[in-house]
């Protein structure tokens, strides 16, 4: 799990260090894939596979949009696309340090050594979705539909003008 974590953090740094947008999108894809690897290492098989499948598609779409909308997608002209660097660095470091302090100093209680088998997990998650969390799950579905309509409406607005 530590190796996947290191890979996720390293590729996360590469996302904002490379000037090529395609490399940036690929780095984010690898970072998200490493997070999926962490899920698998933590024995959350369903979520791990879902993360890998979803992020592969999502980042492929993101790479297309980046090439479409960026002024310099290849990063050949060496444009600086950052602002307020010091303040951002300070905010990022402060956020990370705060979370690290909580992670290390808090008393998390006893650690569970075993988890249910993958098939039992999927079954229990299905029951959770269809019983206790059904309203939340349905709300997520309706929200996705609303976001799709809203995004389409925003994107075609200028054509109507």
């Amino acid at each position: 799990m530590g190796a996947f974590g290191l890979a996720a953090a390293w590729f996360g740094v590469v996302v904002f260090r490379t000037s090529s947008m395609v490399r940036s999108a690929l780095a984010l894809l690898f970072s998200m894939a490493a997070i999926g690897g962490m899920f698998l290492a933590m024995e959350a098989e369903f979520l791990g596979v879902l993360q890998l499948m979803m992020m592969a598609t999502e980042m492929a779409i993101m790479a297309i949009f980046m090439v479409m909308y960026m002024m310099d997608p290849g990063g050949l002209s060496g444009m600086d696309m950052t602002h307020q660097k010091r303040a951002s660095l300070a905010a990022g470091a402060l956020g990370a340090l705060g979370a690290l302090a909580v992670a290390v100093l808090a008393d998390w209680g006893p650690i569970e050594a075993r988890v249910p088998a993958a098939t039992a997990q999927v079954r229990e998650l299905g029951i959770e979705i269809m019983e206790r969390s059904m309203l939340i799950f349905e709300t997520a579905g309706v929200t996705i539909l609303t976001a799709m309509i809203a995004a389409t409406a925003i994107a075609i607005q200028s054509r109507r003008r």
């Binding site: 530590g2 953090a9 740094v13 996302v15 990370a96």
Partner: peptide, 30 residues
């Protein structure tokens, strides 16, 4: 557990830096 939480904290810091420092909408989303 601590390893996972430390990775989460580092990723959060990197993401926060990226969201605040980038000028391009797509990079902010990343």
């Amino acid at each position: 557990l601590t390893v996972a939480l430390v990775v989460g904290a580092v990723l959060f810091g990197i993401g926060l830096y990226g969201a605040l420092s980038q000028t391009n909408l797509v990079m902010i989303m990343m």
